[in-house]
C-alpha cells in the first residue's frame, strides 16, 4: 500500500490562512507547532506536515476502513532533511514512512508502511493544462490533486 499528497503552494497561500487563531491547535500537536514556529519558512513547514498527515491517512483509511477528520491523531516526526525530507507518521499503533520533495511551486509527499518501499514508488506529476486526461486507465495506486497539480503514484 502507498499514499501520496500534493500541495500547490501558491493556491495554499490564498486558500488557507493557517495563521488564523485556533487553526494550528486543531491540526497539530505541541511538537509540530514547535517545528512550524522554529522553521526558517513556516508556510512550507505547515504544508510539509499537512501533506505527511494526508499521505499517511490515505493508507490508514484504506487499511482500517475508518474515515474521520482527526489530524492530531497523526503524529509527525521529521527524520532527515536534505534534498528530500524523510519523515514518519504514527497513528494509533501504526507507523507510516514518508518522503517529501519541495520546490517553489509545489510540495509532494509519498508514504508507505515499509520504509524501503518508498524508493520503489514511481511518481508522475502533471501541471495544468498538461494533465493526463485518461490517467485512471494507467491504474495509479494513489491519486492526489490540488490546484494546478495532479500527482500519480504507481
Amino acid at each position: 500500500m502507498q499514499g501520496n499528497d500534493i500541495v500547490d503552494l501558491l493556491l495554499a497561500q490564498t486558500q488557507s490562512n493557517w495563521r488564523r487563531k485556533g487553526y494550528l491547535d486543531k491540526i497539530f500537536n505541541a511538537n509540530e507547532i514547535f517545528l512550524v514556529s522554529s522553521a526558517e519558512n513556516p508556510d512550507v513547514m505547515v504544508w510539509l506536515l499537512w501533506s505527511m498527515k494526508e499521505a499517511a491517512y490515505k493508507i490508514h483509511n484504506r487499511k482500517t476502513g475508518i474515515r474521520e477528520y482527526a489530524p492530531k491523531k497523526l503524529v509527525c516526526s521529521i527524520l532527515s532533511k536534505a534534498d528530500l525530507t524523510l519523515g514518519m507518521v504514527n497513528i494509533d499503533k501504526a507507523i507510516y514512512f514518508t518522503k517529501s520533495s519541495i520546490n517553489s511551486a509545489y510540495l509532494h509527499t509519498i508514504s508507505s508502511p515499509v520504509q524501503h518501499q518508498l524508493d520503489k514508488i514511481k511518481i508522475s506529476i502533471y501541471e495544468f493544462p498538461n494533465h493526463l486526461s485518461n490517467y485512471r486507465n494507467t491504474k495509479p495506486a494513489c491519486v492526489s490533486h490540488h490546484g494546478k497539480y495532479l500527482a500519480l503514484t504507481y
Partner: peptide
C-alpha cells in the same frame, strides 16, 4: 485544510 476553517 479548509475543514478546519469550517470547524472554527
Amino acid at each position: 485544510a479548509n475543514l478546519v476553517d469550517i470547524v472554527l
